[in-house]
Simulated scan of single mutants.
Amino acid sequence: MSKVKYYYDPDTLSYRKIEARKSRKYRNIGLFLLGSFLFGLLGLTVLLNTNFINTPKELSLQRELRNYDLQFELLDKKMEQVEQVLTNIEDRDNNIYRIYFEANPIPDEQRRAGFGGINRYKSLEGFNNSEMIIASTKRMDIIQKQMVIQSKSLDEITKLAEEKEKLLAAIPAIQPINNEDLRRMASGYGWRSDPFTKARKMHWGMDFSSPKGTPIYATGDGKVTRADSNSSGYGNHIRIDHGFGYVSLYAHMSKYNVTAGKTVKRGDLIGFVGSTGRSEAPHLHYEVFKDDQRINPINFYYGSLTAEEFANMLKTASQENQSLD
């Protein structure tokens, strides 16, 4: 029941009922609604700026942040794995590949050096997690630089390996006459008795005694530079330039199977045993040059002889006997 209010009228000396005006009533209602709205707005603002209530958008952002944290942890572990693999490759590169191919190791300071000069990470500053982002970016940049350096190093190793392969193919590494065609290893490299003057003189090659017409094979890849009889004492002879400073010579041949300018492979038939030139009997006189200096051919037969065969040849070649030329 609404409360009735009265006021005292001195003119009539009586109490009169207060009649409420409609305008005032509406004003009061309006003020109440406005106050309620303002109070509600203030309360909502306070709640939105505290942790008591999160909007759907804030919940979504929180989920994204947690997901970013998880992705960062995974990225960090992957970077650790990449660094471990790179370290292993770099270790093998420095201590196996580059040593084998006689190349200088790459210093760690060069592989893991940072980037000087301008601030490359200025655009990443000013965020809540700037330090973490900058540190991770620097780490990725260093990994990328390591990979570039390692890639270039492997390119260099590949080139060195190709050269090494050519060198191994070029070195005169087999016996020029097959063992089954060989009567005996008549004379080795060193001081020997001359078959004609009987004087002691230096014998610059090895003599392989074999029947006339026995096949003679190239001992390494190369190019035939001479196939003639225009060198004193050698008779019909062939010279092969193997590159890398190596040259092999085959003397006293009965006939040729190649001509000057021809490219040959190790094991190719190049001619036949004879006794031309200054020769006492059918045999092959074989010499090896390195940088224009004669060297002992016996050091290069690892490609065709067993350990036992090599030991027997070494024993025979070391005997100071009479040569056949």
Rank of each mutant, 00 (worst) to 15 (best):
residue 190 G to M: 01
residue 184 R to D: 08
residue 166 K to L: 14
residue 171 I to N: 00
residue 161 A to T: 12
residue 188 G to L: 03
residue 200 R to M: 14
residue 156 E to D: 13
residue 186 A to D: 03
residue 169 A to T: 06
residue 163 E to Q: 13
residue 169 A to V: 05
residue 176 P to S: 02
residue 202 M to Y: 14
residue 152 K to N: 15
residue 200 R to G: 09
residue 149 I to E: 12
residue 169 A to R: 12
residue 195 P to Y: 03
residue 161 A to R: 04
residue 183 R to F: 13
residue 172 P to N: 04
residue 158 T to F: 13
residue 197 T to F: 07
residue 190 G to P: 06
residue 181 D to T: 05
residue 203 H to S: 09
residue 166 K to Y: 07
residue 167 L to M: 08
residue 173 A to L: 09
residue 167 L to I: 02
residue 200 R to S: 15
residue 170 A to E: 01
residue 183 R to Y: 13
residue 197 T to Q: 06
residue 148 V to C: 01
residue 189 Y to F: 15
residue 181 D to M: 03
residue 183 R to V: 14
residue 187 S to A: 15
residue 162 E to K: 12
residue 151 S to C: 03
residue 148 V to D: 14
residue 175 Q to W: 06
residue 186 A to V: 04
residue 197 T to E: 03
residue 170 A to K: 06
residue 177 I to S: 07
residue 147 M to D: 04
residue 203 H to C: 08
residue 177 I to C: 06
residue 149 I to C: 10
residue 191 W to I: 11
residue 172 P to Q: 02
residue 154 L to D: 07
residue 147 M to E: 12
residue 182 L to N: 00
residue 178 N to F: 10
residue 170 A to R: 02
residue 192 R to P: 05
residue 171 I to S: 07
residue 175 Q to F: 09
residue 149 I to Q: 05
residue 174 I to D: 04
residue 153 S to G: 12
residue 184 R to N: 06
residue 185 M to H: 02
residue 200 R to D: 08
residue 154 L to V: 14
residue 148 V to F: 13
residue 151 S to V: 04
residue 191 W to K: 03
residue 180 E to S: 11
residue 165 E to I: 10
residue 196 F to Q: 05
residue 154 L to R: 03
residue 160 L to C: 06
residue 189 Y to T: 02
residue 175 Q to L: 15
residue 152 K to T: 02
residue 183 R to E: 05
residue 177 I to A: 02
residue 178 N to G: 09
residue 170 A to N: 02
residue 185 M to V: 14
residue 182 L to W: 00
residue 186 A to L: 01
residue 168 L to A: 07
residue 187 S to M: 04
residue 171 I to E: 01
residue 182 L to Y: 08
residue 165 E to R: 11
residue 198 K to C: 04
residue 157 I to E: 09
residue 193 S to I: 15
residue 173 A to I: 05
residue 166 K to D: 12
residue 156 E to L: 12
residue 164 K to H: 13
residue 192 R to C: 07
residue 201 K to N: 13
